[in-house]
Design a protein around this nucleic acid. Structure first.
Length: 317
DNA sequence: ATGGTTTTTACTGCGTC
DNA sequence: GACGCGGTAAAAACCAT
């Protein structure tokens, strides 16, 4: 995966070159990533220089490295040699029976040695749980790396001691999402990790208390709108209108204490009506994971907040 | 634990296709 | 009649104290 050169700005990408999934633009972070596989199309706003043009020493050594990139996801950071179970040698030729059995034995022992101490074993267990949950939610790999990093830190600071592994794994993943601005609810992550909502919240608190944590602002309504739009094939025009509505509304007067999800659902609903797309409240509520009642209530408040002028265009102007 | 706020559940009535 | 929409009351969930 190489960064793609910018051609026509953000509008240039619609479809993921890897999995043909939908590319979501994230203006705030200045990048665009694939909804399905997390493929980052580019992050040109932050650094417009393509990687392979940066010829300083560090970059050069980075590109000259051999083997897999160093990753925090694996307990040994992916630095060790893997013995494959394909039964072929380095030239792709099939091995004879004896060599194959020997390779199998080596692989087995490698596995045992790698996770020899209980500490390492539990670490690798936790990291694989994080990985599994991230997989279910199809989170970008950057988030997975961040979550692994957070979990390692929690182990280092002794706050994961005698705590549920899946609980701390879920908490790490959630914190990673918050930090990277990926809008996933604690509920979703708890579900993916197979633990109770309540427990996930508890472990997240424990994690926050233990690890140094700058204030992480909650996701904006705009993020919820994008999330909702991306759940189903909705005309992008509707998203634009919804975002504009959100921007133009005096939000502080109606949003305090309300779930952003409900507000976002209402914006999308109104936007759809204004764009004559007419998505039923029932569907909007479903995508936004709120109730129709909540959508209605938010709609009432938004519409009461300001006047929407609609100019009907006629054939004679 | 408690009290205030918000969301959900469940139900009803209205208009339209 | 099925569907979408709007509303209400009460239960449940949530949150700060």
């Amino acid at each position: 995966m190489y960064p793609i050169r910018r051609e026509g700005g953000l509008a240039g990408f619609k479809e993921c070159p890897i999995c043909r999934g939908r590319i979501i633009e994230d203006m705030e972070k200045g990048e665009a990533l694939c909804q399905r596989c997390g493929y980052v199309a580019f992050d040109q706003v932050i650094d417009s220089t393509p990687e392979w043009r940066s010829m300083d020493y560090e970059e050069r050594t980075k590109r000259m490295r051999v083997g897999m990139p160093n990753t925090l996801r694996l307990a040994d950071r992916g630095l060790s040699t893997e013995i494959s179970s394909e039964g072929r040698d380095s030239h792709g030729r099939y091995l004879d029976l004896e060599s194959r059995q020997s390779a199998q034995r080596m692989k087995k022992w490698q596995q045992r040695l790698r996770t020899s101490t209980s500490r390492e074993r539990s670490l690798s267990n936790a990291l694989s749980r994080i990985s599994e949950a991230a997989d279910v939610l199809s989170l970008p790999s950057a988030v997975l790396e961040e979550a692994s990093h957070i979990f390692r830190k929690s182990v280092k600071h002794n706050i994961s001691k005698s705590k549920s592994v899946s609980g701390m794994a879920a908490a790490s993943l959630y914190l990673a999402c918050r930090k990277s601005g990926v809008n996933r609810s604690l509920k979703e992550i708890a579900q993916a990790a197979g633990i109770k909502n309540r427990d996930a919240a508890r472990f997240y608190r424990i994690l926050l208390n233990g690890v140094e944590s700058p204030y992480i602002p909650p996701p904006t309504v705009q993020k919820y709108i994008s999330k909702l739009i991306n759940k189903e094939k909705i005309n992008p025009r509707v998203e634009r209108v919804a975002l504009e509505l959100a921007d133009r509304t005096n939000e502080s007067s109606i949003s305090s204490g309300k779930t952003p999800a409900g507000l976002a659902a209402a914006y999308v609903y109104i936007a759809a009506v204004l764009s004559s797309e007419h998505i039923p409240q029932r569907e909007i509520a479903e995508y936004g994971e709120v109730t129709e009642v909540t959508v209605r209530n938010r709609c009432r408040e938004i519409l009461g907040n300001f006047v929407i002028r609609v100019r009907l265009r006629t054939s004679n102007g």
